[in-house]
Design a protein around this nucleic acid. Structure first.
Lengths: 248, 248
DNA sequence: GCCATAAATTTGGTATACCATTAGGGGCCT
DNA sequence: AGGCCCCTAATGGTATACCAAATTTATGGC
């Protein structure tokens, strides 16, 4: 058993997704599709503003429309795509105002999480964050922007997780997902790594000193500088390429 | 009067009645179902922990399983219900820890929103909030707990809306929805209205003085007292009624 | 009489078929 | 010649049918 066995409709489906011999739990297809779509959006393989044709995408993912639509509904409530009544789904393409709003919210949540983490984090968690910090320094030294970005994200996730409040961590993860693409591009093209690096030093310092107020305020301003980079980047882009956009 | 409190009781009211001859805009069924389910959950007509049988519920709502399932998926990502792989959906029944976590998050978001609203809110918005405050006093004078509760919610929603950040307002609405049932019951049975009332006076004062820091900190502690009431109530309940729960 | 195992029923998961609505194109009328 | 309207194709919305897994129940053996 355990081989999802929907072979009836699609006879040859070379799906290596779930291990057949493993007695582990088979994950629901809708969830798999949702996760896959999340990845596709976050990795920009589904471009922002792109129209999603259900039948095509369903065939591409080798699933039926039903689980795909359910996944779509989930991503819509997460804010990753937008659903128009009879016009289908498009990948969310936040404008500058939305990005600013989301960063403001994300900053607030990180500040809250940091404040709590400063008092609640275990020594082990702090040690791990310090380890990640060094990894980030390593990535910086190697000028490995991708690794730098990932570790950077991991650090923030770890701080948020250290507050011991899953609800906060979940909210953070969601908002972050909506900004992931933007921040990724910003990271790849921006010049000033050092400001973020300095701030991260302060963050670690405040955390280890268990200084709630300081950690909180640093995290707020930290995302403020992120906003600066993003808006600068957006400016230079609209300058040069003039993104395709609907006009009235 | 415009923007009376009743409008804020439920996120948005669907159109259960079919348009007579009007061919304007038929709202998607899935959305209607989702809205209806939200209301049912929030009004406790679908009890916490209750198992949801898709076929029954679909028949009860006179829709097919497909839109119902899509709606279910949406509510699941919103945290209002929980989906177990093959055991179906149950109405989310947060335990004390989860409630505390959610209140902590909600407090943080309200604090953030308040801080921003203190500087950004228009005079008209502040006036409207004051008007709502008086409505709440009226409900208090009449000992109308339901109205009091609704106006109370409306005030907080108005403050959050006044921060001019839809992302924050949306996040707030979602977290609040998950706590609505709990807070509603707490409100109906708790004795001490006055503490909340006093705090609301301070809130209004800080907002009109445009004192960001004060408004922010008051909103944080305000939900702290909410936690006190909720936990007290939970205590007395487990004392007296012994909620129906699965036993080994 | 009790426990274990297997069958049946129930329930959720998935696929497909069908219907309604909307966008696009071409022809007709002004 | 240009704009309005109708017709057609495509796409999303809804319903139903079928399959697999899980729970419950019945039955047989200890």
């Amino acid at each position: 058993m355990t081989t999802t066995a929907q072979n009836r409709a699609t006879p040859d489906t070379p799906e290596p997704k779930d291990d057949p011999g493993q007695r582990a739990a088979p994950p629901p297809l809708t969830q798999q599709v949702a996760t896959k779509l999340r990845d596709l959006i976050v990795q920009d393989k589904l471009k922002a503003g792109e129209r999603i044709r259900e039948r095509d995408l369903a065939e591409r993912l080798a699933v039926s429309r039903t689980p795909l639509r359910e996944a779509l509904k989930m991503l819509a409530t997460e804010g990753l795509i937008e659903l128009s009544p009879h016009r289908g789904a498009v990948v969310a393409d936040p404008d500058l105002k939305e990005i600013r709003d989301l960063l403001e919210l994300l900053g607030g949540i990180e500040a809250l999480a940091g404040e709590l983490a400063a008092t609640r984090a275990s020594d082990e968690e702090i040690s791990e964050i310090r380890a990640l910090h060094y990894e980030m320094l390593a990535a910086y030294a190697r000028k490995d922007r991708l690794e730098y970005f990932k570790v950077n994200q991991a650090i923030h996730a770890a701080i948020v997780a250290a507050c011991g409040n899953p609800a906060i961590a979940d909210a953070h993860r969601r908002i972050n997902a909506r900004l992931y693409r933007v921040r990724y591009r910003s990271n790849l093209r921006n010049e000033s790594w050092h400001t973020a690096l300095d701030e991260h030093g302060e963050i670690l310092e405040a955390l280890e000193a268990r200084n709630s107020q300081k950690l909180s305020s640093i995290l707020r301003s930290h995302l403020g500088s992120t906003w600066g980079k993003v808006s600068d980047l957006a400016e230079s882009e609209t300058d040069s390429e003039t993104e395709l956009e609907e006009h009235p």
